[in-house]
């Protein structure tokens, strides 16, 4: 008998999640698991609910007035809406990187240290160590180590986005959510981010929203296709891109939509 690789644990799992903005249904009865130490890509046309779903995973949707949900989202088997789980703690465990690189108008060092400082870490040496570790983890250290005190806004777009990844990594989350992290970058910067995602997989569980199907194909282990607020199909990325089960997935990945 060959070695059967054990099927990975589900780090996060949505069960029949429905989310409304006011009376408008944004996503409808989504049940989707995010396996540990894998990259799960969420694809679909604009407005299909993939970003909304992603933002539900660390309750960023709570910030938008008028949203309410039914169904559950589990993190390590516990509901993220559980009273015992503070939303601030949730976001420390489930970090997020946004589409537009959004460094604070502070120094490179302060950007990475931000999450640690708001978390109450004051020790200078510990801060420095964590900042260096995160910047190394985001493959940015060598480019910025001599100018940590300079403004983060002086970095190139690709560097800024890696800085944002470093910033998210600094608080040592368990899950990293990425909302189109490379959509505003040139191909070389994109390749660096994608390479980074490959490396981060061993430490983190990653969910990534992308408009770029080739990117989903390149970086992810599993792909979920969203359409009009519904999860049409989720499966191994190779299967989604060579032999999807659903007609709508087929039409989307082959470019036959509207």
């Amino acid at each position: 008998m060959p070695l059967q690789s054990p099927s990975p644990r589900n780090k996060m799992e949505a069960r029949e999640l429905t989310l409304r903005y006011g009376s408008k249904v944004a996503i409808r009865t989504i049940s989707l698991a995010i396996p540990e130490h894998q990259v799960t890509a969420l694809i679909g046309p604009s407005g299909c609910g993939k970003s909304t779903f992603l933002r539900s995973l660390n309750r960023m949707n709570d910030l938008i007035p008028g949203t309410h949900h039914t169904g559950t989202i589990l993190l390590d088997g516990t509901s993220i809406h559980d009273r015992a789980l503070d939303v601030v703690d949730l976001r420390r465990r489930v970090g997020m990187v946004f589409q537009k690189s959004n460094p604070f108008p502070k120094s490179i060092f302060e950007n990475v240290a931000y999450g640690l400082r708001v978390g109450g870490l004051k020790d200078k040496a510990a801060l420095s160590a964590r900042v260096e570790k995160s910047l190394r983890g985001a493959a940015l250290w060598d480019e910025v180590k001599d100018r940590l005190d300079e403004s983060a806004l002086g970095l190139s777009g690709g560097q800024q986005q890696r800085l944002c990844i470093a910033r998210a990594m600094a608080v040592e989350p368990e899950v990293l959510l990425m909302d189109e992290p490379a959509s505003a970058l040139d191909p070389i910067a994109t390749a660096k981010i994608e390479e980074l995602i490959h490396e981060l997989k061993s430490t983190y569980t990653i969910a990534i929203v992308t408009h770029n199907m080739q990117q989903a194909a390149r970086v992810s282990d599993r792909t979920a296709f969203f359409y009009m607020g519904e999860l049409v199909e989720c499966g191994p990325t190779e299967q989604i891109f060579t032999n999807p089960r659903e007609k709508r997935t087929e039409d989307y990945v082959t470019g036959k939509f509207g």
Partner: peptide
């Protein structure tokens, strides 16, 4: 920018921390 607020909140800052920092 709203981006800065959301980034701060996503890093586990409270609303008042976001306001002050």
């Amino acid at each position: 920018p709203l981006d800065h607020r959301t980034a701060s909140l996503a890093l586990g800052a409270t609303q008042s921390q976001t306001l002050v920092r």
